[in-house]
Structures are given as structure tokens and as C-alpha cells.
Simulated assay, not measured.
Amino acid sequence: MDTKGKKILIADDEPDILEIIQYNLQGEGYEVYTARDGDEALMRAKQIKPDLIILDIMMPKKTGVEVCEILRTQPSFKDTLIIFLTALSDESSQLKGLDTGADDYVNKPISPKLLLSRVNALFRRVNKKEAATNSVLHIDNMIIDPVKFIVMVDAEEKTLAKKEFELLYLLASRPGRVFLRNEILNQVWGNDVIVGDRTIDVHIRKIRQKLGLDCITTVKGVGYKFSL
């Protein structure tokens, strides 16, 4: 994979972790920058405009989750890839991280080879999506624009988190078709990201709430389909 020109920002308050991650990513050809706390991570992100950010969840000044939430509210960081580093292994913590707009998480203690594999996998997925033709969807009173990353319902713009948008776009691209749970996980989160069925359920519920529409139907024991 061509890594030339790809910029990665790593934010962690442990110098040894920063050093080993930086060493491995630079060895792969990435341009790597570092930050020691949440405030510095925000400042450097705005300066560097990285393609991917690796955030430790438990950082001083601002946590990784807080940094992610702030970045996702800014249009210039809506498509930036974000990976969480976490020592928290419970499902609720992982769901919270993904729900804020992260693309993946890696548990501590870190395996540099695993982290590098996840980074490469995320970039491959982005390249595939960019190569594909993503057209604007017009369905009754709804418009879903994957270029501008917006959803309009009755001419009113609705704000969705990145994964919520990707999930809605997938289902709405084939109205009436039932998507299996594994199929949704693979296409929205990717084969290399380990998330549970509950992750889909949480995102579906939030999409319904934010759109104010019961536009996604649960097919019990099978999956989901889009219908207006």
C-alpha cells in the first residue's frame, strides 16, 4: 500500500508508547507526529490536518473521547480516521468510544504489529470507498449526500455521526433489501474491527432518533432493512 504523504498524529501521555508506535509507523513510510495530552492533540491536529489520529482514551487535560467529540463537530475532521488506544476492555467503554465517531480501537498493552495492521486496513477501506461511485440518494422526503456528508429530511438538515451516516447510506442504497448483521459489520466497520451486534443496535436507535423517522425495520433474527 502507498503510504507516501499520509500523516498520522499519535496522542498518548506515556513516552515509551509514543516512541514505539512512532518507530513502527515511520518504518512503514507514514509521516508521524506526536502529542502528550488532549489539549496538545487538538492543537496539533488543527496545525497538521492528519489523515489519521491515534488517541489514548485516558489522557490528561482532555480525554481521547473528549478530543474525538470536539474534532467530529468540525467539518474539516468529519472524515479523519480515528483509532482509540484503551486499557478499558468492557463493552460499554468500547461502545462509547465508537459512538463518539471513532473508526476503531486497540486494547492496551499494545501490539505494534496489530496496530499497524489496523492502520493499514483503515486506509485500504478509505481507498476502496473513494474508488467507488457514491451517488446522492433521493428517497421520498429524504436526501442522503455522501460527498457533503449530510442528510436532509423535509429540507431540514440532520446531523449524524460518521458511522451512523455510513450505516444509513448502506441500508438506504438498497431500499427493501434485508442486510444481514455480519454483512453490516463487514461493510461499515470492516473485517479488521471487532465489534458486537449491540453496536449495530445502538447506532440504529440513534439514527431513528436523530431523523425522527422509523425508517429502518428490524427483521428479527436476521438483520435490518430500509423502508419509508
Rank of each mutant, 00 (worst) to 15 (best):
I216F: 04
T100H: 02
E157L: 10
L98N: 00
I110Q: 03
F149P: 01
K4I: 09
V151C: 06
K148A: 11
L211N: 08
L95F: 11
G5T: 04
P75S: 00
E14M: 08
V151W: 04
G29H: 00
N191W: 11
I204V: 06
L18E: 05
L116I: 02
D16T: 06
W189D: 10
R181H: 09
V136L: 10
E183H: 10
D99S: 09
K206E: 14
E40C: 04
Y23W: 00
G221R: 07
G29T: 01
R181Y: 11
K210L: 05
A131K: 14
E156M: 13
K6I: 15
K108Q: 01
V219H: 10
T3N: 13
L71Y: 05
A87H: 01
K162Q: 14
V202R: 04
G5S: 10
I143M: 05
K62D: 07
D140F: 14
Y33C: 10
D145V: 01
M152N: 07
F165M: 06
P109I: 02
R118H: 14
A161V: 13
K4F: 14
K162N: 09
L137K: 06
P50F: 03
I21S: 02
I194H: 13
L116G: 08
K162M: 11
K62T: 07
A161N: 13
G223M: 14
I54R: 05
Y33D: 08
L168C: 00
K6T: 05
T73E: 13
D13R: 06
D37Q: 06
H138I: 01
L211H: 02
K62F: 14
P109R: 00
K62I: 12
G97H: 03
K49I: 12
V119E: 07
G221Y: 08
I48S: 08
I150F: 03
R177D: 07
Q94E: 10
V219P: 14
V136S: 01
